[in-house]
Design a protein around this nucleic acid. Sequence first.
DNA 1: AAAAGGTGCTTGCTTTTGCAAACGCCCAGC
DNA 2: GCTGGGCGTTTGCAAAAGCAAGCACCTTTT
Lengths: 161, 161
Amino acid sequence: MRVSSIGEYIKEQREQAKISLRQLASQAGVSNPYLSQIERGVRRPSAEILQQIAKGLRISAEALYVQAGILEDRPPDSGVRMAVLAAPELTERQKQVLLEIYDSFRKENDGQPVSQAPGPAKKAAKKAAKAPAKKAVKKVAPKAARAPASSTTPSRPTNPS
Amino acid sequence: MRVSSIGEYIKEQREQAKISLRQLASQAGVSNPYLSQIERGVRRPSAEILQQIAKGLRISAEALYVQAGILEDRPPDSGVRMAVLAAPELTERQKQVLLEIYDSFRKENDGQPVSQAPGPAKKAAKKAAKAPAKKAVKKVAPKAARAPASSTTPSRPTNPS
DNA sequence: AAAAGGTGCTTGCTTTTGCAAACGCCCAGC
DNA sequence: GCTGGGCGTTTGCAAAAGCAAGCACCTTTT
């Protein structure tokens, strides 16, 4: 367990790099007061600002996004995920379906390498009652969106960090 | 490069999913006018909104971020088949299932690249060109694998094991 | 043919972002 | 002494984000 907020994380990374707030602000191309507010959680930086800060800190932007709760925490990459995401011959939905199945397989195997020993080839996924789990960002009206069940329409596992 | 802006990409994905603008807006938890403006490039959505839209579209958030030029490009690592075959965390049976589904998807798409490989994520171009993108992928996979998800009825691997 | 409902788009409006210009504080020099 | 420059913080304010309401148009339904 590291830090709880994106600002703390940025501040931690900045202090670890032993650079001042103004320095980082300059390198990131943002104003110093704004960076100060970001670090203290007063403001919520937009995507572009986050990206620039990540550049200034020379850390991965994805780390920042995960910290910000914007990107979901991904399981450690195993090549399959990247290959699927990069595949130009698949639609995004198809990629999603493949990755869901892949994740469910990995969950079955509990992360153990099983390439030699074939485990019990169970069914991958069952029907699961869909809890809405509406994580409103701010003031999202409870609209009770329905899933239309289109042709190739998977459902994301919604893996919270 | 199929699309040049994030808005076009979102619109393309939305139309590919065959849902209306209002539907996506509702599922994403944003207002319809705002989504309209985002798709036409009038507004630049924040990170949170982008994430909600990605959820609503059920596509990977990474794809959106790369499109927005916010996340760096990731190494292509092409070759889904090789990556799957090389994965040590899957059983042979699981590999076979994944590759079956992968092949059925490719057959659906008739071998045409339907999602562009993420290009160099430099946020310079504002050139807007009307992308036709009417290659609807509507054919149903014949028989992917009886295992987890026949492509028309994807599973929800929210397995609480 | 009007009512009802669908599509996307435009219009005011409030809220938030992000910055420039301050501020107070501490420490090195001239 | 006090001048200068570093630090992080506070304070308005222009600009953009984001939404509710309404618009115009097109299909269905009654």
